[in-house]
């Protein structure tokens, strides 16, 4: 079977949906964070696939930017989760109830 652009896009769409589903239904902050990374990587996959099939390298350059930004986001995010854990002894979203009206 020939693997074409469509197949890559379907995989990418599936990964993105799985990531989004994980963010919505999982309750642990670390797992939510992993799902977010999955969403970003799904987008990267489709960027590379488009780049390959359009023979335009701009998409792959964009992937480098995305990876860099994701790394910065993870560094800040994990630091925040650790700080929250130290303060509250929990990494579950149900326990984030200080801010309510």
């Amino acid at each position: 079977m020939n693997v074409g652009l469509q197949h890559y896009l379907i995989v990418s769409g599936l990964l993105f949906s799985i990531g989004l589903l994980g963010v919505v239904i999982r309750r642990n902050l670390i797992v939510i964070f992993m799902s977010l990374e999955l969403m970003l990587n799904a987008a990267n996959l489709s960027l590379v696939a488009f780049s390959r099939y359009n023979s335009n390298l701009d998409g792959q350059v964009m992937v480098f930017f995305t990876i860099t930004v994701a790394a910065a986001e993870v560094a800040v995010g994990l630091a925040l989760i650790v700080a929250l854990y130290r303060k509250r002894q929990t990494a579950h979203v149900e326990d984030l109830t200080t801010l309510k009206f």
């Binding site: 970003l40 799904a42 359009n54 998409g59």
Partner: peptide
């Protein structure tokens, strides 16, 4: 931002 990157990928495509 994940939505945005995916959107940019589709626009680029």
């Amino acid at each position: 931002s994940a939505f945005m990157v995916f959107g940019i990928a589709l626009i680029f495509g």
